[in-house]
């Protein structure tokens, strides 16, 4: 098993004819992931590296029984693409697009929640289940195995790039990943760390989870509460980057849009203290992950 993605994933890419989406399609196919369809209005009948393009997602779903969609359209069209996906009955939507207007995100996240649809992102670099060679998004690029090999560690990262680096650290320690998820760098995202921890808890193939975090939001504080409530009981290894921002003037953004300390909340030191109090293995240095993983998992 794994979470979110497996060999039953039937994937379509919304905005498949764009430059980046087409490249991602190629890399995914090369890795062995079945991308079944793409959607770009007005381009039905074309193909992208052999993947058929449709005008509407509705038709792609009818023909290919799509259950997972990846949104690669420009920011102004994300709102509509997500609504289209929800309306078509797709149950898992990953939004890769960055700079989605906040008001749009509020609305489509509310709709998705009502419809029981899992949204990853916006501003996610993707997610991957190496055992089944299934990935969505740019994650892993053209050399997926450099960072992502099958294993028993779940990875959650608020930074897209660090999803790969963290999974590579897991590999360096001698392990692999069950599923790695880039949850998106924005403050308003569909799936939080706690949401994923619940899924990893239920997954018999995940034995531990590593999180890469940044300042801002209350995702880590919420995760600490989840552990204390007994809803996540596997070993959790957490690194919170950006401690230096605490000595900078408040209200300044370093890193992703979600990484803002405001009104005294969202500080890395607070996040670390709460996670530690809840029993998580909090990393002082990112490199501590390697010896700690070995020590705890052996």
């Amino acid at each position: 098993m794994s979470i979110l993605l497996d060999k039953h994933s039937r994937i379509a890419i919304q905005g498949i004819t764009g430059r980046e989406a087409a490249m991602v399609t190629k890399h995914s196919l090369d890795y062995g992931t079945m991308i079944l369809a793409g959607v770009t209005p007005g381009k039905e009948g074309q193909d992208v590296h052999g993947v058929p393009v449709y005008d509407t997602l509705k038709k792609a779903v009818q023909v290919h029984e799509i259950n997972t969609s990846v949104v690669y359209v420009p920011p102004a069209f994300v709102y509509d693409a997500v609504l289209e996906s929800i309306a078509c009955g797709v149950k898992l939507i990953l939004i890769a697009t960055e700079n989605v207007p906040q008001a749009d995100a509020l609305k489509f996240l509310a709709r998705a929640k009502q419809a029981g649809v899992q949204v990853i992102g916006p501003n996610s670099v993707g997610m991957i289940t190496p055992k089944d060679r299934v990935k969505v998004g740019a994650i892993g690029g053209d050399k997926v195995e450099r960072c992502f090999v099958p294993g028993k560690v779940g990875v959650i990262s608020r930074s897209g790039g660090m999803t790969a680096e963290t999974s590579w650290m897991v590999k360096r320690a001698g392990y692999g990943v069950s599923t790695s998820v880039s949850i998106g760098g924005d403050a308003l995202i569909g799936t939080s760390i706690s949401d994923l921890l619940k899924l990893y808890q239920a997954d018999p193939e995940t034995e531990a989870v590593v999180t890469f975090s940044e300042p801002g939001t209350s995702f880590e504080e919420d995760a600490a509460e989840l552990i204390q409530a007994g809803e996540f009981s596997k070993p959790l290894f957490s690194f919170v980057a950006g401690r230096f921002t605490e000595s900078m003037p408040e209200g300044t953004v370093f890193g992703h849009a979600g990484a803002m300390i405001a009104g005294g909340s969202g500080k890395p030191s607070q996040k670390m203290a709460k996670l530690k109090a809840a029993g998580a293995h909090v990393l002082e240095r990112f490199d501590d992950l390697i010896p700690l993983l070995k020590e705890v998992l052996n």
């Binding site: 990262s157 608020r158 930074s159 897209g160 790039g161 660090m162 680096e165 760098g185 890469f212 940044e214 300042p215 690194f239 980057a241 950006g242 401690r243 230096f244 921002t245 370093f254 890193g255 992703h256 990484a259 240095r285 990112f286």
Partner: peptide, 28 residues
């Protein structure tokens, strides 16, 4: 340095070893 998370990690790392970055950057 870059990207968002990588820059934060790198900046913290330099400070932790007693170094002082002259600027912050995100290039990616």
């Amino acid at each position: 340095c870059g990207g968002g998370g990588g820059s934060l990690l790198s900046f913290d790392a330099i400070i932790s070893f007693g170094g002082k970055p002259a600027n912050y950057s995100e290039v990616g």
